[in-house]
């Protein structure tokens, strides 16, 4: 069984936010307005935050998305099992099961679970730009980064129809695919020959707030020498 993981090299990352837009378009995240953004209702599954990291002169810009913990604090507290850790290590959110209690959003130390405060809306002319592979979440449920799980489903199907195994390049989340600085590497952590496994066990690798015991599968590579 694969264990999907993502490595973000902070030394390479320029903070250009291409990943943020890629995620927004790929996953049908509705647009905000100044008013909604002002009260924390920006719909983003990945965003740039200023994090104080040891050894850096000023706060680093850190692309922050669901850390896909192996011990997720959010799944334990869900009263309806609407969020759970799937066998491949992706923390999934099942929208039709979610009652919108927002306990998981509060339990998450990374604050990366997003709540649909209102019904998502697109102007009429923009209706077509939504990705038909991904649902538009209704109001009142929590949503989050899924490592573009729909891409995995599609890739696996293509591979099976073609009668071959899933190749590493078949499945890449939108953010990783777009990253112009080539700062993101995605793959199977359980495969010792994969790039992610090598990078994740390298000397620069760290997991953010790992002292909380969350065991994230998003691994950052430290900036600096």
């Amino acid at each position: 069984m694969s264990r999907w993981g993502l490595v973000i090299d902070l030394d390479r990352c320029t903070g250009c936010q291409a990943c943020v837009v890629a995620c927004k378009h790929e996953n049908n995240l509705p647009f905000s307005t100044p008013e909604t953004a002002d009260v924390g209702r920006l719909m983003t599954w990945i965003q740039l935050v200023a994090a104080d990291l040891p050894g850096r002169p000023m706060p680093s810009s850190l692309p922050l998305m669901c850390q896909q913990c192996d011990r997720p604090p959010c799944t334990d507290v869900c009263p309806t099992s609407a969020t759970y850790l799937n066998p491949e290590g992706i923390v999934a959110q099942i929208y039709p099961r979610c009652i919108g209690c927002r306990y998981c959003t509060n339990a998450c130390p990374y604050a990366v679970k997003i709540f649909n405060w209102t019904e998502p809306e697109w102007p009429e002319s923009m209706a077509g730009m939504r990705n038909p592979d991904v649902s538009a979440r209704p109001k009142g449920v929590v949503e989050k980064c899924t490592f573009c799980h729909h891409r995995l489903i599609a890739a696996r199907e293509r591979a099976r129809v073609a009668g071959r195994e899933l190749a590493p390049e078949d499945y890449v989340p939108a953010c990783v695919q777009i990253c112009p600085a080539e700062a993101m590497t995605f793959g199977d952590l359980s495969d010792p020959h994969s790039d992610v496994a090598a990078l994740a066990s390298g000397p620069r690798a760290f997991r953010w707030m790992e002292e909380l015991g969350t065991q994230p599968k998003v691994v950052y590579l430290r900036e600096g020498e």
């Binding site: 759970y84 799937n86 066998p87 491949e88 992706i90 999934a92 099942i94 929208y95 039709p96 099961r97 592979d133 991904v134 649902s135 899924t146 799980h149 729909h150 489903i153």
Partner: peptide, 8 residues
């Protein structure tokens, strides 16, 4: 039977 396999 993974929920996320069919739910999106």
């Amino acid at each position: 039977e993974d929920c996320a396999g069919c739910h999106r």
